[in-house]
Design a protein around this nucleic acid. Structure first.
Length: 570
DNA sequence: AGTGCCTGCGCG
DNA sequence: AAAGCGCGCAGGCACT
């Protein structure tokens, strides 16, 4: 390889455990091919310029092993993720070849995360990794991009999505610094001392006793929804469900301790001592992130409930000694994205300060911040009734362009069409079942029930496509933020070995690194000496993401950012 | 014993 | 059953 020329290399798996490195031009023309060992591959990657792009079937099958060996990859093209985008994108004029290549439509498989590359058993349930198939798929994708009506946007999306795959692997490798003693203290204070065996912690048991006493039913089951419902009925509480919101409606002495009991058992079962020993025993919480796991382009996760960490446990996210956390989230990401997409300067004006909702109040559209918030959420989610639905018309008058964008997306969805994000991720077409339901309702002999069901499913789909364009574009903004952030953090110098945070692994123990990501929020774990630099990078990356997506349109994405020891909200 | 659905609740 | 989007997970339960 000519180390000075930015380029592309396709990586594939050869016989036994060797790797086939195929140098290609950006348009997919093959220029050189060779076999190598893992050690040789590591050397090739380290020696390549940072602009070189590594093309591979599936990031979780390559990158974890490289990270373990201390090798970082600057740029990649993840064929599985990009296939899914290109196959469905409305920007692509001819996706037939991609749709025919069904082997590339394998869903993300968390089981490939830790083992697949160089594993002894090769039972790849995922996408193909043989050289010929990988090369052909790459060529298909390059052709699809070239044929698109806006190739640059798609290239941006594919690069961002692939960078996200790298970030996901890095987040897993580095982990969230987790302070078990703090977690245990929260559990002890909230639930009571950890019991032996299967007994309930003392405070949980006390609340259960109170509920049963108030019900006059010493054997009432509190954990089985149907049994609890019957016990409530016997005690004169005619609830139809056992959800918190409904139970709170009733005035009965069992309700208050029951609501507490439910809250405590939730903490116990979701993030109790078992969770701690299973997921954070070594001082790091390492969830498996699943880039592209949500149709809108958001990430999903599997294992440990990474995307549901209760705020209550945030204090347990704590920097290592001599390190700090930079905790940053975007204020009102989705409405800002909507303003920019729609070119709605009135909404962008409202967003000018730090609080978009206050901006809407200041514009006289509604009278309180709370109203502004539920109105805007209602507009993006498709609320039609209640407080939210009532306030939406005021928004429609004040911000006609933004509202037209989401209203159009909803109408298209109701009619069975597809909608796209800013960079070209396109919603899936309606299912056969959905189309059949609509067709049935328009039959001459359709009954009123058919009609009702069809209208309802049409509106359901409209709310989905309405939200898709906003949620999906917000996810693109977040990917752009992450991509720039990881690159710039990677350029920070290593700190002296004495300051290393050993649990973060061979790469991330020595400099600031991403530790957590959740839709519109990131946590960076940084040596104290790098905290200010890293925080500046976090802010600058947000600005660069805004410009990358929306150019000169006057919208900003202010961060709530703090440099702290732990992630508790202060 | 394994599966798949339902309810409920955590997160954005 | 929080009006309205997107998720994951635990526990119970009905089914095979």
């Amino acid at each position: 390889m000519n180390a000075s020329a930015p380029g592309w290399s396709v990586l594939a798996r050869g016989e036994a455990h060797d790797v086939i490195v195929i140098d290609v031009t950006g348009s997919g023309v093959e220029t050189a091919r060779r076999n190598c060992s893992f050690a040789e591959l590591s050397r090739i990657i380290v020696d390549a310029p940072s602009t070189h792009r590594w093309v591979w079937d599936d990031t979780p099958r390559w990158y974890p092993a490289l990270l373990d060996a201390g090798i970082e990859v600057a740029r990649c093209h993840d064929l599985r993720l990009c296939h899914a985008i290109l196959r469905d994108s409305a920007l692509v004029t001819d996706a037939a070849a991609l749709r025919d290549a069904q082997a590339w439509s394998a869903p993300a498989d968390a089981g490939t995360a830790d083992d697949a590359l160089f594993a002894l058993d090769d039972d790849p349930r995922g996408v193909p990794d043989a050289p010929e198939e990988v090369i052909v798929e790459f060529a298909r994708q390059q052709a699809a991009v070239a044929s698109a009506c806006d190739p640059e946007r798609l290239r941006l999306l594919l690069a961002a999505e692939s960078a996200g795959a790298l970030v996901a692997a890095e987040l897993h490798a580095a982990g969230v610094p987790w302070h078990a003693p703090t977690h245990e203290a929260i559990l002890a204070e909230t639930l009571g001392e950890r019991p032996r065996g299967t007994a309930l912690p003392s405070i949980v048991q006390s609340r259960a006793d109170e509920v049963r006493a108030a019900l006059g039913d010493p054997t009432a089951s509190l954990d089985s929804q149907p049994k609890l419902l019957r016990a409530l009925h016997r005690a004169g509480v005619p609830a139809r469900s056992t959800s918190r919101w409904e139970l709170a409606e009733y005035d009965h002495p069992a309700i208050a301790p029951l609501l507490v009991y439910k809250k405590l058992t939730r903490l116990l079962s979701a993030n109790g001592w078992n969770w701690l020993s299973e997921w954070a025993a070594d001082g790091r919480f390492r969830p498996t992130y699943v880039p592209g796991g949500v149709v809108t382009g958001r990430w999903a996760s599997s294992g440990g409930g990474a995307l549901q960490l209760p705020r209550q446990l945030r204090p347990a996210v704590r920097a290592d000694p001599d390190w700090t956390l930079i905790v940053a989230d975007v204020a009102q990401l989705e409405p800002r994205v909507l303003a920019a997409m729609a070119g709605d300067t009135a909404l962008a004006d409202a967003a000018r300060g730090t609080d978009l909702y206050e901006g809407i109040v200041a514009g006289g559209v509604v009278t309180t911040r709370q109203e502004a918030k539920i109105a805007l959420l209602g507009a993006m989610y498709g609320a039609t009734t209640g407080d939210s639905g009532r306030l939406v018309p005021a928004l429609r008058r004040a911000y006609p362009r933004a509202m037209a964008l989401v209203d159009d997306a909803a109408r298209i969805g109701e009619e069975g069409g597809v909608v796209s994000t800013w960079l070209g991720r396109t919603s899936p077409p309606p299912s056969g079942r959905w189309r059949a339901l609509q067709a049935q309702a328009s039959d001459a002999d359709a009954g009123a029930d058919d009609d009702t069901a069809a209208r309802r499913s049409a509106r359901d789909r409209g709310r989905f496509t309405r939200n898709f364009v906003v949620q999906g574009t917000a996810a693109e903004w977040a990917l752009a933020w992450l991509a720039d952030l990881r690159t710039r953090l990677a350029a920070l110098p290593d700190v002296p070995p004495a300051e290393a945070a050993a649990a973060s692994g061979p790469i991330f123990s020595r400099r600031a690194h991403l530790a957590f990501f959740l839709h519109d929020e990131i946590i960076v774990h940084a040596p104290r000496s790098q905290a200010e630099d890293a925080a500046a990078i976090v802010r600058e990356s947000a600005d660069r993401a805004a410009r990358l997506l929306f150019g000169t349109f006057p919208i900003d994405f202010p961060l709530d950012l703090r440099i702290t020891q732990d992630a508790a909200k202060d």
